[in-house]
């Protein structure tokens, strides 16, 4: 009960902060949820009929895309963030870049095997 009250109180506190959503535009949460809804739908549609041959490249390619957190980790070394956050940010950058570069290069290598074969024909 106290828990619910605490959460409710804090939500109300935020809702009253006028600067957050000046100009009467939608709060980010709602915008974000719209974007989420539509992209999940696009994701399902786009991926539905991929032939099994491409399951591995698709997985490793999309795995590389999940390294998009690199964008988030770059924010963490900005001025808004204190030193300790910057350190976490640096760690995040290294991890995310390994994921991104490793993922795309591995996928390219795999797909190279498919296309090399196509070329010979």
């Amino acid at each position: 009960m106290t828990l619910c009250l605490a959460i409710a109180a804090q939500t109300a506190e935020i809702a009253q902060a006028p600067a957050a959503h000046a100009g009467g535009s939608m709060p980010f949460l709602l915008v974000g949820l719209w974007v989420l809804l539509l992209s999940v739908f696009v994701g399902f549609e786009v991926i539905q009929k991929v032939p099994p041959t491409l399951h591995t490249p698709l997985m490793s390619g999309s795995n590389a895309i999940s390294g998009i957190t690199i964008v988030g980790s770059l924010y963490c070394v900005g001025n808004d963030y204190p030193l300790s956050a910057g350190i976490l940010g640096i760690l995040a950058i290294v991890c995310a870049m390994i994921n991104v570069v490793g993922g795309f290069v591995v996928t390219d290598r795999m797909l190279g095997m498919f296309s090399a074969k196509g070329g010979k024909k």
Binding site: T69, I70, G72, S73, G89, A92, C95, A96, N99
Partner: peptide, 9 residues
């Protein structure tokens, strides 16, 4: 590592 990056962020 992708998961680790999200956790750190």
């Amino acid at each position: 590592l992708g998961g680790a990056a999200s956790m750190f962020v």
